[in-house]
Computed example of a mutant assay.
Amino acid sequence: MTASSSNNFGLTERQAVIGTVGFYMLTALVMVSVNKWALNALEVPWLLLWCQMLIAVLLLKITHYAGLLKMPKIEMSVAKALTPLIAINVLGLGVNTLCLVYVDTSFYQIARGLVLPFTVIFAYVLLGQPSSHLVLGACFTVFCGFYTGVSTEINVSQLGIFFGIASSITTSLHAIVIKKSLPAVNNSSIDLVYYNNALSLMATTPIIFLSGESALVVERFQSQGFASFHQFLIAALVTGIFGFLVNLAGFMQISKTSPTTHMISGAVRGVLQTLLGYFAFHEVITTGRLTGIILILSGGALYTYAKDKEMKANSKPAYIPMTQQDLDGEDEDMDVENHKVGKA
């Protein structure tokens, strides 16, 4: 009976892990593909981001009024403390989307391929965390993949590569800034998600006008009418909903699985994203592009193996009740007791 319930519980956990990982990859893939579809219809990346964040804030508010989640009230002191997070988030979302404007979906993985090396660099410079030789080897492999993919492309946009590198930097910094921002919201992840979306929405609003996208929208509306926005508006709605779900899926995956599994699913997502670009958008995958993607994913796999090895090594002392010095000390105490008994 016990064995049976243990098996049933194991199956349930397995289903939960498979479900959350699959949900995360599906939502992330939909975001990339629909974003590309929207930008092909109307090249207004900042307006697209604004629509996505607006929908995310509205959905969070709906969950609040429905009693599912509790959203905080915006406080100026907290908003001021979160300024670095909002700045890096808006900048990161902007360069991510701009990168997607100038490169193919299948090349997007290569353009943003330097996330891992920058993460290791910033972890050392800002947090003082050194890396093992195996991790540095993984970073070198990823860099070789990035260089191979970029150097073998003839018609690739240099601006797209620039935004890809900028995206790698902001993505690497984002995790560090989030870690430092959590105390401002009493370590509440959902409060941080709400503040992040609401304040980023406000910060993005003037950019739409400064970038000239508002004038482009007015011009398109006057020349072609509302029908020309049909595809863009559908895509904005879909990506807004899935943007909300990506946040939820990311939290679900991390809570149900380990960080190692999270990284592996990210690598698998990269492969699926490349295949998506090939089949859905009829993009050409050159030998250099394919080699670059393989090297980047191999470097990511090596990094995952290295961190998993480090985690297992660090967890070993937790299973040892006493150190060797304690055991030696206990032996000495036992000798003293035996000596006393012998004298008695």
Rank of each mutant, 00 (worst) to 15 (best):
S265W: 03
S189H: 06
T152A: 09
H230F: 13
N338Y: 08
L48G: 00
V177I: 12
T105Y: 03
L199Q: 05
V101Y: 01
L295W: 01
L248S: 06
M76L: 11
K61S: 15
I234Q: 03
T257G: 04
T63C: 14
L173T: 04
E13K: 12
I121C: 01
W50I: 00
F232M: 05
S106L: 02
I234S: 03
V185R: 01
K179C: 14
G329F: 10
A111R: 02
T204H: 00
D333Q: 12
E283D: 04
E330W: 13
H174N: 09
K343I: 15
A111K: 00
I121V: 08
E310L: 13
E332W: 12
A227S: 10
P130I: 04
N338A: 14
A184E: 06
S223F: 13
E213T: 13
M263H: 07
I293A: 10
P130A: 10
F242I: 00
S211W: 04
A166R: 02
T274S: 08
L182H: 06
A227C: 09
G299V: 04
L216V: 04
I88R: 02
L59A: 15
W37E: 04
A267M: 12
K316P: 11
V120R: 00
Y319T: 08
W37K: 09
D191V: 07
N7H: 04
I190W: 08
P321Y: 14
M76Q: 11
P321V: 14
G160D: 02
N186Q: 15
Y124W: 06
A301C: 15
F226Y: 15
L91Q: 05
A227P: 04
I207K: 02
L134N: 05
N314S: 09
K256A: 13
I18V: 11
C144K: 12
